[in-house]
Write a protein that binds this DNA or RNA. Sequence first.
DNA 1: TCTTTCACTGGTCACTTGACAAGCCAACGA
DNA 2: TCGTTGGCTTGTCAAGTGACCAGTGAAAGA
Lengths: 192, 192
Amino acid sequence: MTTRALQREHTRARIVEAAIEAFADRGFDGATTRDIATRAGTNQGLVSYHFETKADLWRAAADRLCNELAERLERELDGLPSGSERARESLRIFVRLNAQRPALFHFLVDAGRHDGDRMRYLVETHLRRRFAEVARFTGDEEHAAHAYYALAGASGLLFAVAPECRALTGVDASEADVIERHADYVARLFVP
Amino acid sequence: MTTRALQREHTRARIVEAAIEAFADRGFDGATTRDIATRAGTNQGLVSYHFETKADLWRAAADRLCNELAERLERELDGLPSGSERARESLRIFVRLNAQRPALFHFLVDAGRHDGDRMRYLVETHLRRRFAEVARFTGDEEHAAHAYYALAGASGLLFAVAPECRALTGVDASEADVIERHADYVARLFVP
DNA sequence: TCTTTCACTGGTCACTTGACAAGCCAACGA
DNA sequence: TCGTTGGCTTGTCAAGTGACCAGTGAAAGA
């Protein structure tokens, strides 16, 4: 690959990563392309140059976020021994992902509350597969949606509102032992 | 009370109610005072007249939302028979409140992700008491925060992203039997 | 009855927003 | 080597944004 092409990809990646942070922090409406540019260490014009619209950038950010998590999930689940403990460990892994990337939860909530383009895109492109897995996991057609959203909520909320959790309970959700305790709590909750 | 004072209170209440919807829909940054005014059936100037700043209006909306839910929760818990089923029924009630007022979840997430004035206000004014109750309920000092956020997430997310849930799973979270099924699911989850 | 009060309206303000366009210059290709 | 490409910067634009203010008219008080 040429120097220029490499530089281009590198810059785009930096902007997308900054966009993930910004959209998670402020929501789609609240995040500004200027703020994203600053986080990426450049200027607003460059964001418009690489991504035609703000919505395009959001889609790129959602893709990056979801693909990264899907890959990591698949990789970590792969090396798991089968048996009764497998289900619980799967849940622990899912909780750890939520802890490392609270942006996932924010994208889900921010896009999911309206029936719009962003919600449709998330559902069609990324969520269908993940939901199908949970549905197969529960086996229960009737309660699949309930299990899915209860799990996602129980796993992600703590890390999504980490500053509030710190102020309210004194618990720092970024600490490793807190993450592990939550992973264990959720795992035992859903697989007693 | 005079006609004017009554009218004033009525108008303020209308604006606050519109603000709850708007802030839940778009977040603090995304919601505009003009949109709030339109939802309330008036003009932007009147919003500024009744509430000095947008942040003031947000605080009034948060108060209204939290007080309403605290009252309802207390009232419904009051008539509950003691016994082994009491814990489960408490959880069902909590889920039903989340279903009726998904705005609660959105306020929590929107304010809770940053260490700022709104987050502090929510914690100090409304959340402390509620968390203390959950902590007393679990009895377990070590896991109180984990139980609290797992419960809040598991109860609220489904209704907070109802449009997404509909598109993803076909389940309409506004239907009464879906609400009851989720209430039962969460209740059995936390009190097996 | 007549003045005062005040909830409410319409319009203006400085400022921010996303999108766009002209120019710059190092990397590229001939 | 020299013209071209294209990533990038700077500046500009219309469309909002929250806050503010003078004016209005009906209710309240004298």
